[in-house]
Computed example of a mutant assay.
Amino acid sequence: MKLFLDCEFNGFGGELISMALVDENEKYFYEVLPCMNPTSWVFNNVIPILNKQAIDLKEFQKYLFNFLNQYETIHIIADWPEDFSLFLTTLILQHGTCMITPKLTMELWESDTSLKIDSKIPHNALQDAFALKRSYFV
């Protein structure tokens, strides 16, 4: 199953704030983590449009595990490398232990420059993941 990934994070190289994965049938995972010290840009442009209450990392990982493990295989598509980094970090449960997932591959995808990834709510991970999916299948 193709899953389209988008993350919001606290400034360049900052911690994960929200993650969305949208499958080919538009079933989705979307969760938000606490962001204690957002940059001013994130405070003004991301936090107001999260549209979901933050949960702790353990709960986030439990929901992610349940979402991912409904598939036999997963092919994750993102248009920014940091999204993969943040996703993979959430798979680490503790020192020496990671989340069990179905067979997983990844694709860093750049849309044709003539195509614009048009999100209904830019900088909202869920809406951006839906937009990535729409753009991918054009």
Results as ranks from 00 to 15, higher is better:
Lys133Pro: 01
Gln61Asp: 06
Leu115His: 13
His95Ala: 15
Leu57Ala: 09
Leu91Ile: 06
Met106Asp: 03
Gln70Ala: 01
Asn10Gly: 01
Ile55Asp: 13
Ser135Asn: 11
Met19Cys: 07
Pro34Asp: 07
Lys62Tyr: 12
Ile76Tyr: 04
Thr90Asn: 14
Thr97Asp: 10
Glu72Pro: 02
Phe4Ser: 02
Ala78Pro: 13
Lys103His: 06
Leu132Met: 08
Arg134Phe: 03
Leu88Gln: 15
Ala54Met: 09
Asp118Lys: 15
Ala129Tyr: 10
His123Lys: 12
Thr90Gln: 15
Ser111Cys: 11
Lys103Phe: 07
Glu82Pro: 00
Thr113Gly: 00
Asn44Tyr: 09
Ile47His: 07
Pro34Gln: 03
Gly11Gln: 10
Cys35Phe: 08
Trp109Gln: 10
Asn51Trp: 00
Thr105Leu: 03
Phe12Trp: 05
Glu72Gln: 14
Thr90Ser: 15
Ile47Asn: 04
Glu31Asn: 13
Leu33Asp: 14
Glu107Met: 03
Lys120Ala: 10
Pro81Tyr: 12
Gly14Asn: 12
Leu126Asn: 13
Met106Val: 03
His95Cys: 13
Ser135Asp: 01
Phe87Asn: 07
Leu16Asn: 08
Asp79Tyr: 10
Gly14Thr: 13
Lys62Arg: 11
Val42Leu: 03
Asp6Pro: 07
Asn124Trp: 03
Lys27Trp: 08
Lys27Pro: 02
Met99Lys: 02
Asn25Gln: 14
Glu107Val: 01
Glu24Lys: 11
Gln94Pro: 05
Thr101Phe: 01
Phe4Gly: 06
Lys133Val: 02
Ile121Leu: 10
Phe9Val: 04
Glu24Ile: 10
Ile77Tyr: 05
Asn51Met: 13
Leu91Ala: 12
Leu115Met: 11
Thr73Cys: 02
Leu33Asn: 13
Leu68Glu: 06
Lys116Arg: 13
Ile55Phe: 11
Ile100Thr: 12
Phe84Asp: 02
Val46His: 10
Asp79Trp: 06
Leu88Glu: 15
Ile74Val: 11
Gln94Leu: 08
